[in-house]
């Protein structure tokens, strides 16, 4: 509670700047392709220049899926800024995704 307001501000600023997004997919299935293209277009529009997308194929790297407890695919994990968020599905519902990633204020 007795945090230095300066540090708090600085952290907030830093995290707002860059988004680390991890997308878990299965091979190149249609749903996975759709999820990736949905994510790319969303980032272009809302996070221009301040995002990184990591794509992980769970078939090739099951350990990574186990680490992040990814049972359902496609799945998007917002790694930073915290708090961590998990969005399941092919991300077609853009309003819900934006809301989950704290990029829109309204109720999805």
């Amino acid at each position: 509670m007795s945090q230095n307001p300066r540090t708090k501000l600085g952290r907030k600023k830093g995290t707002r700047d860059h988004y680390l997004l991890r997308l878990f997919v299965v091979g190149l299935g249609p749903n996975s392709k759709l999820a990736l293209s949905n994510l790319q277009s969303l980032c272009c529009e809302h996070l221009e220049g301040r995002y990184t997308i990591e794509v992980i194929d769970v078939v090739k790297n099951y350990q990574a899926a186990a680490r992040d407890n990814i049972l359902i695919t496609p799945a998007l994990v917002l790694v930073t800024p915290l708090p961590r968020v998990v969005v399941l599905g092919n991300l077609s519902d853009r309003q819900r995704v934006l809301f989950a990633l704290r990029l829109s204020g309204g109720d999805p």
């Binding site: 749903n31 049972l71 695919t73 968020v85």
Partner: peptide, 28 residues
């Protein structure tokens, strides 16, 4: 042992399936 618990905090947006789980189980 594969601990595969959903926490109910996940947001759903669009179609999905359980291939992530199958990949983990398959790996083990």
């Amino acid at each position: 042992i594969v601990e595969a618990r959903l926490f109910g905090e996940e947001v759903t947006a669009g179609d999905f399936d359980i291939q992530g789980l199958l990949a983990i189980v398959g790996g083990q």
